[in-house]
């Protein structure tokens, strides 16, 4: 693989790691948030943090979506390795894996396109959830959906380039050196 490819991909790794850290901190903060809510609830006559509404609408999307491309990079997405792994015909293997990656790219394009439409709708109609009589806008977290799938799309494009260039089927751009 060319140096340029590696350099650009290294930068992209950095972006995905950033996403992972956002998600990780979201879990960490959610942990404290729910515990505080429990604490306050068990102290008489106290304030509510609306943990149910806030965790489901803000924390969960923040946990799931920013880390999505990172999960793909680390080869987390399960697939059952029957033919590609077992077949002796490398050319056939390569053909199948390229087809699958292209299909994945198409699916991601659909999710990005419609996810972005949903984001526009949410801005347009002021989509919100309510906690304690206050409306909290949903568009910032809905925007995470097309952004995160775009990162996955980029990951898949890198993977496609790697497969075509290296003439060897693979589902991770950088192999895990165990």
């Amino acid at each position: 693989m060319s140096d340029n490819f590696s350099k650009i991909y290294q930068f992209f790794i950095y972006i995905k790691k950033l996403g992972m850290l956002v998600s990780g901190f979201a879990v960490f903060i959610m942990m404290f948030y729910i515990c505080l809510d429990v604490l306050f609830r068990n102290i008489e006559g106290s304030i509510s943090l609306y943990a149910y509404e806030i965790t489901s609408n803000y924390f969960m999307p923040l946990i799931v979506f920013p880390a999505m491309a990172f999960a793909f990079e680390k080869g987390m997405m399960p697939r059952i390795d029957f033919i590609i792994g077992k077949s002796k015909n490398i050319k056939f293997q390569l053909f199948v894996s390229i087809c699958l990656i292209i299909l994945e790219i198409v699916l991601m394009l659909l999710l990005i396109f419609y996810g972005f439409q949903y984001f526009l709708t949410s801005v347009d109609s002021g989509l919100a959830f309510t906690a304690g009589g206050t409306n909290y806008p949903l568009w910032p977290v809905i925007l995470l959906v097309p952004i995160s799938f775009s990162l996955v799309l980029i990951e898949m494009v890198f993977l496609l380039i790697k497969n075509i260039a290296s003439k060897k089927p693979s589902f991770v751009v950088i192999e895990d050196k165990k």
Binding site: L21, S23, G24, V27, I63, V64, A71
Partner: peptide, 9 residues
Amino acid sequence: FADTVKLTS
């Protein structure tokens, strides 16, 4: 964090 969120995603 990495192990937790990649599993969740």
